[in-house]
């Protein structure tokens, strides 16, 4: 995503904030506040008898403060470690396919059984490759499924059913 990089203004202007630091800082602030607020809804307790919320509240607040420091860094020229690194665009479609493949496995493995779930999972994942055609993805996923079944079912005897309840296995 090319919009992540800040646009350098001419000399004399204050430079635009460095976007990656802005995003990272914002993420820390949001996550820190989320943990702190959710944590404060549990019993916070006292220093002697710390309740369930004590540590999450304290750490959440600390994370939010660190997030502010990272945001401040964005306005002060950015993190030197990544400032000059050329970033490629985010691979939304490929990344989405990979995440979708993993989620598919989680949702369907108990219902469909190992063999079909594994085939679909690896097929979706393989489609994320550069220049992988559906045919090539199908061949790849068939091979990987066979390999996994040999390793986990035949050799390790993990007792995951090959076909799940929905398929009458």
């Amino acid at each position: 995503m090319s919009t992540e990089s800040g646009v350098a203004h001419g000399a004399g202007h204050r430079p635009a904030p460095f976007r990656p630091d802005l995003y990272a800082g914002a993420a820390f602030i949001v996550l820190g506040l989320a943990f702190a607020i959710a944590g404060s809804r549990y019993d916070v307790g006292s220093a002697l008898r710390m309740g369930s919320g004590y540590v999450p509240l304290a750490l959440g607040a600390l994370l939010a403060v660190l997030g502010l420091l990272v945001v401040a860094m964005a306005f002060r020229g950015g993190d030197p470690a990544i400032r000059d690194v050329q970033r490629e665009p985010v691979p939304w479609r490929r990344g989405g396919l990979l995440v979708g493949a993993v989620m598919f496995f989680g949702f369907f493995v108990s219902g469909l059984g190992l063999a079909p779930t594994l085939f679909v999972t690896t097929f979706i994942a393989a489609l994320a490759g550069h220049g992988t055609s559906p045919l090539k993805a199908a061949l790849t996923s068939a091979g990987i499924t066979a390999l996994c079944l040999v390793v986990f079912v035949a050799l390790l005897r993990l007792r995951l059913p090959l076909l799940g309840e929905w398929l009458g296995g």
């Binding site: 108990s110 995951l160 309840e165 296995g169």
Partner: peptide, 27 residues
């Protein structure tokens, strides 16, 4: 020994209406 490797399992699949007299027919 090798069969003992099979520690993990899902609900024994199928066989819901099997004959109780024949139990057990599966692991």
């Amino acid at each position: 020994t090798l069969a003992c490797l099979s520690m993990l399992t899902l609900a024994a699949c199928g066989g819901g209406d099997a004959d109780p007299a024949a139990y057990p027919e599966d692991d």
